[in-house]
Amino acid sequence: TTNITKAREKKKMKNQIFYISFAAFFFLLVTKWSSVEAQTCKPSGTIKGKKPPPGQCNRANDSECCVQGKPYTVYKCSPPVFSRTKATLTINSFQKGGDGGGPSECDNKYHPDDTPVVALSTGWFNNKQRCLNYITIHGNGRSVKAKVVDECDSTMGCDADHDYQPPCPNNIVDASKAVWKALGVPESDWGELDIYWSDA
């Protein structure tokens, strides 16, 4: 009976070690996940808005124009990129005369509204590292591939170079009409949409 008791105690101890190890592993996993989630991009400062001169700031696609004296937050970074990165989809015209302003930064060209192209917030644009590469956008139960052609500048705004529009938030995928159409979003709902994106 002593041997049986010892065997039972040994088995009980093994089970306890297993459960303690499992609990420790689970705790580490949760802690690691929380720290990844907590890796947020903090603002790098603010700029003061300037009133657009007459004829400046194209209001197409409900674009916002800077307000004199209003502080706007700027960012040099964007949230971390994962296999599916959460973002806000906005709408922009990359064609000549559109609310995108000048030609695209990646190729110094304009792009028609029926071409699936995007601009990414400064951190995700990553000093042109994603220029002319494709990303996959998931939203509204569909997905579409789009070419990165421009930066949605999160570091500056409210000047002639940015058509007197505010700095871009740090989590934006600014997309042409073709992207919105491909995602099957009704035109009346174009403007902002919660999406996920990934490098294609």
Rank of each mutant, 00 (worst) to 15 (best):
K32L: 15
T90Q: 07
T90F: 06
L28V: 14
N92V: 12
C106Y: 00
E37W: 06
P103M: 03
Y75K: 00
M156A: 14
P71V: 15
I135Q: 00
Q56L: 10
V173M: 03
D174M: 12
D113P: 04
P169V: 09
C158D: 06
T155L: 08
S63P: 02
K145A: 10
N140V: 08
L193V: 08
W190E: 03
T88I: 14
E192S: 15
P186I: 08
K181Q: 09
Q39H: 05
K12I: 13
Y134S: 07
L132R: 05
N3L: 14
N133I: 02
K42W: 07
N58V: 12
K70C: 09
T73G: 06
Q95P: 02
F26M: 14
D113S: 09
L29R: 07
C158R: 13
T2D: 13
V67T: 15
F25H: 09
Q129G: 05
C152K: 06
T136C: 03
A146H: 00
A60C: 06
N15D: 04
N140Q: 02
S21A: 15
K50M: 14
V149A: 01
S104G: 00
S154V: 10
P43L: 10
N108P: 03
N140R: 11
N108T: 02
H162S: 11
L193S: 01
L89M: 14
G49W: 06
S198H: 07
A200D: 15
V179G: 02
T122H: 04
G191F: 06
S35I: 12
H138L: 08
P112R: 01
N92D: 13
L132D: 00
T31H: 00
V30L: 14
K181E: 13
V118A: 02
S83R: 13
F82D: 07
S154I: 10
S63K: 13
T5F: 06
Q56M: 15
T46P: 03
V117P: 00
K10H: 11
F94R: 03
G141M: 09
P186K: 03
A38W: 09
T136K: 13
G157V: 07
F26V: 15
A23I: 15
R84C: 01
N170Y: 03
G100H: 06
G102Q: 06
T46L: 12
P116G: 02
P79L: 05
P80W: 09
Y75E: 05
K6T: 14
L89T: 12
A175R: 04
N126S: 10
G97Q: 04
S63Y: 05
I172N: 04
N140P: 01
L183H: 05
T40S: 12
N127H: 11
T73S: 07
A119N: 07
I4G: 00
I137P: 01
L193Y: 02
H111N: 00
D150L: 02
V148M: 01
A23L: 15
G100T: 03
S121K: 08
F125I: 03
R59G: 05
P103K: 04
V148N: 01
V144P: 04
T88Q: 13
W124M: 06
S63M: 12
K51N: 10
P71F: 11
S143W: 08
K109T: 03
I135R: 01
F27W: 13
I135E: 00
G55Q: 05
D194G: 04
F25K: 09
Q16R: 15
F26C: 13
E64T: 14
G184V: 01
G191P: 08
A175T: 14
A160D: 15
